[in-house]
């Protein structure tokens, strides 16, 4: 057996909020001082709520936090210039449609949902573009259906991990143990002092929630 014995009390591995300062990046930017930005070091949930409420500071922080991720996702399917266009379109669209964002959901998951559609549209547009076609046809090649691939799985993973972080306690700890510590529900019950039935119920409900959120983002 590797890994030695069972570990002691499991401390949830919390992800510290990413510290971001909202400050001018260049001297000539002449951005007015906005005072202490409440979102700069806020956790993801607070940023999501600020964004939903139409707070531009929260939007700016959301961009800093997740635009590079959306960019990375887009670059899996698209060349540089198109990927940058997609990132831009995703965030413009996110801001305009923020009324449709439910702040009980993870904001990165919602952004990834928008990104999936934008990326698929951009891929389809490239396939239609005659100058990219290797055959000299007048109508352009038919757009191939976008099939699930590794890029979609990577997007799924972003959504799922973000939603996992949004679970309350003790559900989050229970599910992390089931996913990452490979513990059975009985072992989780022993470690958390929760009844076995409660652990099973948390596992089922939490996984159902993750699945619903994932299907809602696709």
């Amino acid at each position: 057996m590797n890994g030695g014995g069972l570990a002691g009390p499991v401390i949830p591995r919390t992800v510290p909020p990413v510290a971001l300062r909202v400050v001018p990046t260049r001297e000539e930017d002449d951005v007015p001082t906005t005072g202490a930005d409440p979102f700069a070091s806020a956790d993801d949930e607070a940023v999501g709520r600020g964004f939903a409420a139409g707070d531009e500071r929260a939007f700016a922080v959301a961009f800093a936090r997740w635009a590079p991720l959306v960019h990375g996702l887009a670059l899996r399917r698209l060349p540089d210039a198109d990927a940058q266009d997609v990132v831009q379109a995703v965030f413009v669209s996110a801001w305009r449609t923020r009324a449709g964002y439910d702040p009980d959901r993870a904001l990165p998951g919602w952004l990834v949902g928008i990104a999936r559609h934008r990326i698929a549209d951009a891929v389809a547009a490239r396939l239609r573009a005659p100058e990219l076609s290797t055959v000299d046809d007048r109508d352009g090649p038919a757009a191939e259906p976008v099939v699930p691939d590794a890029a979609d799985a990577a997007a799924d993973r972003i959504v799922l991990l973000a939603e996992l972080e949004r679970l309350g306690e003790p559900q989050r700890t229970v599910l992390r143990m089931a996913f990452f510590d490979d513990l059975t529900h009985v072992q989780i019950a022993e470690r958390t002092d929760l009844p076995v039935g409660t652990v099973k119920s948390h596992v089922r409900r939490s996984l159902r929630r993750l699945r619903d959120r994932l299907e809602g983002s696709a």
């Binding site: 590797n2 990046t25 930017d29 951005v31 906005t34 531009e56 700016a60 590079p68 991990l161 996913f179």
Partner: peptide, 27 residues
């Protein structure tokens, strides 16, 4: 005048959770 995100601060790569190596615990 909208605030601008400070992109010069590179967000640290978050270590996404992974299954621990001890996945054979139940073996």
């Amino acid at each position: 005048t909208a605030p601008r995100p400070d992109l010069s601060v590179v967000a640290p790569r978050r270590d996404a959770p992974r299954r621990r190596d001890g996945r054979a615990r139940r073996w």
